[in-house]
Design a protein around this nucleic acid. Structure first.
Lengths: 214, 214
DNA sequence: ACGTGTGAACACATTCACAGCT
DNA sequence: AGCTGTGAATGTGTTCACACGT
């Protein structure tokens, strides 16, 4: 379930604050969801709560981490070391541990050999070799749109079955390969859509949401 | 509907290739969805297709752009000019036009005054003034987690009702304010979750998805 | 008394299948 | 003949409300 990571983060915040036990009501509001939904989600992992009391924070953190596969380390390769790729490489806090950036790849010869986030950028031609030697299981694509499909196919053929795609294209991959997409301009467009609805939605655009309040 | 931006992108690709008309079947496969779903989505905007023929690409592009509010320009402010904020500021291709980066804000005095993507970084204390003078209607938060809620509240009070949040926290905002969240480590955790399922899901972690294929 | 776990009701999204227009 | 638009069927996710354990 896609909400487990959110619960985990909320639980870790509680843990840092020294909280030992938490009710579904409190955890739900910290995670921004309905309490019944949270209980149903947690009951899917087995029943780790105590009626009349709540959930033991530490135990639940461990159970969710295990369910998410964070008790092992996942090697990640980033293909495309432009602005975004560099930002990801330098973004130290990949949440709680569980992920290790194992390789940076780029097609530009001028980029190859440079050191980014204390890793040497390697040429994309080495993709297959790097996936094998570093046991990469997650591929992150931050290339231009035109190169994304090619890189994805190479990742898949090299044995990577999990891909995080930042390029603005729909990737074609075989069944069994898991692709998640993050698209900044789509997020902005969705915000604009709702903003326009608020403002009247007639396409005139005279009164924007932000202006109504001033 | 959150799929309109995807359709729009697919249509623009067709347009660039000189295609004049497209069937729901073809457009659906380009966008990676079921054709019935696509037809139902499009029928929500009114009936812009011709039975026996398909949809006229140019007309549909215009209709979707209008529905999404892309016929007007939205001013965007980015708060937090770290690696990610810089990457976003420099990411020229904010899809098709419709968005203009109007201001960059940061709390670090050493950052203020620097030029990023040919914009001067301004101090976060100027947030309210900048929102007013630039008519900002979308706020992007790329600050550290600890500062995100404060920045969000200031955006909202300044009249910004659309927020794109990259900080790993759940933001608390009043009703009527639209928050979308992009969280890199959550995306990775979801991938890890599915990868573990594929690999057996027993938490041993001996055989990873990537290794099964080698 | 308190709060979890869950059946039942509900709301929503997806898919099927086909009538009807061009 | 071909393809859209859409009722009907199906599936999935959410919320309610309360029985039951502690």
């Amino acid at each position: 379930m896609a909400r487990l990571p959110v619960y985990l983060r909320a639980l870790q915040a509680l843990q840092d604050r020294g909280t030992l036990t938490v009710s579904s009501e409190d955890l739900a509001s910290a995670a921004g969801v309905n309490s019944a939904k949270l209980r149903k989600d947690l009951s899917h992992l087995g029943s780790y709560g105590t009626r009349g009391v709540g959930y033991e924070v530490e135990y639940l953190v461990y159970q969710i981490s295990r369910e998410l596969g964070l008790t092992q380390d996942w090697a990640v390769a980033i293909a495309g070391i432009g602005n975004l790729g560099r930002a990801l490489a330098n973004y130290g806090g990949f949440g709680t541990r569980g992920f290790r950036i194992a390789a940076l790849l780029d097609a530009d010869p001028a980029m190859v050999g440079q050191s980014v986030a204390s890793l040497d950028v390697r040429h994309i031609d080495n993709l297959e070799e790097v996936v094998r030697s570093e046991r990469v299981s997650i591929g992150v694509i931050t290339t231009p749109a035109a190169s994304a499909q090619g890189v994805a196919t190479r990742f898949v053929e090299a044995g990577v079955a999990s891909i995080l795609n930042f390029a603005p294209v729909v990737l074609n991959v075989p069944d069994g390969v898991d692709v998640r997409k993050v698209d900044l301009s789509i997020e902005l467009q969705i915000l604009a859509f709702h903003a326009q609805r608020r403002a009247g939605g007639d396409g005139r655009g005279a009164e924007r949401a932000g202006l109504e309040l001033t």
